[in-house]
Amino acid sequence: MKRKIKKPIRIIPVLDIKNGVLIKGINLEGLRVLGIPRNFANYYYTSGADEIVYIDNVATLYGTNNLSKFITETAKNIFIPLSVGGGIRTLKDIEEMLTAGADKVCINSSIIDNVKNLKIASRKFGSSNITVIIQSIKIGNKYFISKSNGRDLIKVNPIDWAKKVEQYGAGEIIITSINQEGLRTGFDINLTDKISKKVKIPVIAHGGAGNFKDVLNVINQTNISGVAIASMFHYEAINNFPKPYPKVGNTNFIMNYKKKNTNNTIKNLKIYLSKRGIKVRL
């Protein structure tokens, strides 16, 4: 199948944050500490990321209080777009994030609660700066959306929801498959494809990248504008940072981690895609 989108596909590393440290879980639960977000952000910037997404996983539950400080620190040395999400509920939250160094904000829960908030935000800040995250959960053959990383299931179909958030002014959609998240067994191509063809705003696929082939498949079989990847890049990036490691959260993994090169760098992925006819920014 020939891709219709002519722009280079955006390769977007995702930083999941809790209490200021980079974490990673499986199906967004069972979190382990991987390191300091700033280190990862700088590394991804220099290795050719097209954008970075920064999500504070627990901000929805506890509020955004410390988020700005961490964002400023993360954004300091990177000169590519930074999208920030997690716990953003009010116009003031959005303004705070942009002032701290975010270029776009990602919202989910607050617009599930009241979709009119999306219209208000996109009017004030411009549609293109508001990204909507759709967390999809598949149970049997049925799809649902969720907020707070799957803790609350909402009986709405992700495709219908995508159409709705587009109407209410979303500039972009990140479709996160909670089922695939962290498993590294490939993307939910079926759902991603349907959404990417249903809306006229950019769609980013997220959740499931295990190897370069997975990424190639989701690009070739859908109409997405970008791919968001966490684990696959993190477990390569982690080899590049010296101690000390952060002292918060579950650090067992990182303390006992032995270096293991996977060659899963952003640059290598881009070269791989480019050789297979996919346009990338190299």
């Binding site: 219709k4 989108i5 002519k6 722009k7 280079p8 955006r10 097209d50 549609s127 293109s128 500039g171 972009e172 006229k200 705003i201 950019p202 109409n223 504008s225 970008g226 920014r281």
Partner: peptide, 11 residues
Amino acid sequence: GSENKINIGWS
């Protein structure tokens, strides 16, 4: 046409 109505990305 097939492109999005918002231009986001690298050109």
